[in-house]
Structure formats: structure tokens, C-alpha cells
Amino acid sequence: MIHQPIYILTVLFFLIFTSEWLCKHTFLKHISSSLLVIILGALVANLGIIPSASASSSVYDSIFKYVAPASIFFLLLGVNLKQLRRAGIPMLVSFLLGSIGTMLGVVIALQAIDYETVFGIRFAAIAGMMTGTYTGGSANFNAIALHYEVFREGAIFTGVVVADNIITAIWMIVTLSIPVFMQKFRPHATVLSDSLADESKREKEAIEPKGVALMLGLATLVIFLADLFAEITVEWGWNVPSILILTTIALILAQFKQVQLWSGAKLLGMFSVYLFLVVVGAYCEIGALVEVGAHAFDILLFTTLIVLIHSAFLIGISLVIKADWSIVAIASQANIGGASTALALAKSLKRNDLILPAILAGSLGSGMGTYLGFLVARYLGA
């Protein structure tokens, strides 16, 4: 019975519901829904409630092939590159410097561990994944993992996700302290943006059946075209990843005003991400998790060094150019945690003038993270 597709989907949907409910109504709210849904997926798979990696299902393959790319497409539709000029030069400069620091951090941190033993032949892909996620968020992480099929190494994938969540949470605390500490250590002038964000404005999406149909139809069309173009590039000798083509198409569509008025993309994107991640959890068998346990310290060291090198590079340059320390902290958080954590940091620092720039910097990271991730992965031989 556990191999019947309708049964598997039923369990996966209820696991997503459960993770969201637990994160909002219990002490588990300190754990991200993304991490919790992976844990729940691993738990039910190891209890034999749904198939695990060794007894995989066609449902899982379909989710990896279609749902995961769709999630990336939906989330990228919210990236409006025309509005980035409103972030101001200081925020964009700090954000781009942080992105360079991330790439340097990934390459250097990899040398600090026995990466071939820890990550095996997928070390370059994992380096690309970390570049992507520490440039602007998990959509980039998933895009690169999907192309290189790192998700099939369920235990390693989960180990990296766990380390990423730990470091991201700690970095929020650190970035809250940066403006206070650095302003005392090296006082710099405060830069204010021209536009103030409306703190009471919250994103809400009302979805109608025609909107859902349009979004799903567009997503499947773009996935089809991306796969088709990828095959054509192989014939031409270029071998361009379909995910990279999908990312490019999504970013182009996102610049049209009519597309920006569509509702539902973010909601569909997040649900698709959760469905993808719960299957990743199902691939985490206990035996494989035990094997990764021996390398848990190396994985944590790897992710920690990436962020430390990123911050050292960004803060070092900021000392020279005398940047506003609040902008530096928010830009760094946009790199490491994405738009949502950068927004939370701007609010925590009581810099309402930087709320919109924080979101836009995070959007830039969502747009460029996949490209930089593939760049690093290819540089390392993936």
C-alpha cells in the first residue's frame, strides 16, 4: 500500500501541513519550516510509513523533475530588477561585495576540510549550492542541487541544510550586533534612503482558479521550453543547464508589469519548495545519516568558514569606503539569509528606510545566486 502514488501524496501533503502548524503554534517555532519538513519526511520514511530512498517511488521522481523546477520559477517571478535602483548605490555595493566574499569563502573553506572524503564526487556541486544560497537564498541552493542531483545523496543534503540553518540563525544575531559594535569601533556616517518603506504594508495574495491555472500552465510551459533549449545547446556543444535557462526566462517575465500584478506565485512557490524538501527528507535513511554523522563537524566547519570569510571581506572593504554599518549588516543578511531575514533585520535595527532596499537586495540575490553558484561549481570541476 505504501507504494501507491495517491497514498504517498496524501502523506506528503499532511507532513507539510504539520510542519507549518508546529512552527506557528509550538516551541518548534524556533526551527524553520523548511528544516522541520525534511525531518518529518525522514521520520516517516524510516518508520516505513512511506517509501525511503532504497525503495524509491515514481512520485518522488516526478517531484524532482517537475515540482522542484516549478518552485524556482514561481519564486523568481517576484524579482523586479527595474526597482533595484531604489535600493540605492550604498546597499547594492555592499551586497555585491558580500557576494564576492561568499565566492571567496566557498573556495577557501573547501580547502580547510577533506572535501573529497566528506562530500565525495559532488564536492564541486555542493560548493556551488553554498555559493547560491549565501548569495541570496534557498531557491538558488535547490536549483543547483537539482541540476547535479545532490538531493539523491539525502543524508549529505540534509547535513548541509542543517548546518546552513544553524549558521543562518547565528548570523542573524551577529548582524544585529554589527552596527552597534562597529559604530563604536569605527564610526561612519549614516546614510538614509530617499524612500521610506510602509511598515504596515504586508504581502497578501488572493488566488482565483483562473490565476492558479495561469501560473501552473506557465510554469509547465517554461519547464518544457527550458528542457528543449537545453537539449538544443547540447547539440551545439554548449551544454547549458535547463535550470539556468528556466532562471533566465523567469527573470525576463518578472520584468513585465502585467506579470508583477499576478498573485499566487509566492504561495505556489513556497508550497512547491516544501513538497520538494519533504521528499528530500524521505531520502534520508538512518544508515546514511549515521555515515554523515562522522563528517558533521567538517560540514559545520565548512559552512562557518564561508560566512566568516564573507564577513571579513565585506567588513574589511567597508572600513575603507566608510559604509553605513546598518547597510553593511543588512546587505550581509540579504546574502546569507535572503530577503526575508534582511527585512527582519532592518525592522529589528529600526531602520524603516532600509526595509525596501533590504527586500530588493535580497531579490537581486535570488536572481544572480544561481549564476554564481554554477560559476563556482564549474570552476571547481563540476
Rank of each mutant, 00 (worst) to 15 (best):
V37H: 02
A226W: 04
F181K: 10
T10H: 08
A254Q: 01
S57F: 13
I50K: 04
W325N: 01
L354F: 06
E291F: 14
G98E: 05
L218I: 08
A226P: 06
V150P: 11
L22W: 04
I6S: 13
E291I: 13
S62P: 14
R202P: 06
V376R: 03
I243W: 05
A109R: 03
I178R: 01
L319V: 15
I50C: 03
M172T: 09
F157I: 11
S340H: 10
M1G: 08
I8V: 15
T168F: 12
L372T: 07
S326G: 10
H295I: 11
A339E: 03
V107I: 08
A112S: 13
G381H: 07
G101P: 10
E291V: 14
A265K: 05
V107T: 05
E205I: 01
N80K: 11
R86N: 15
A329D: 04
D227Q: 15
G381R: 07
L360A: 00
A127R: 00
A250W: 00
L40G: 08
G48T: 12
T304G: 04
G367C: 07
L218N: 07
L228K: 14
W238F: 11
L301P: 14
L261W: 10
W171K: 08
G337E: 01
H310N: 13
V191R: 11
N335K: 03
I100Q: 06
I306T: 05
I8R: 07
G101N: 06
K210S: 11
A45V: 15
L35E: 03
F157K: 04
T247M: 00
L277Y: 07
G373I: 14
I49R: 01
A382V: 09
L110V: 00
V106M: 01
A382C: 09
V307C: 10
L267R: 12
L228Q: 11
R152T: 15
I89V: 13
S263D: 11
M172D: 01
L267H: 05
A342F: 10
E153T: 13
F17Q: 04
F74C: 03
A230R: 02
K201M: 14
Q333K: 13
A361R: 02
P357G: 02
V259T: 09
M91K: 09
P209C: 12
G101S: 03
I167M: 15
L77R: 11
T220M: 13
L300P: 13
M182E: 02
V307T: 11
A377G: 02
L251D: 01
L356R: 07
I178M: 07
L218V: 10
R186V: 15
W238P: 04
D353K: 02
I89C: 02
V11I: 14
A254L: 00
A42Q: 05
V240T: 06
L9E: 05
L28A: 03
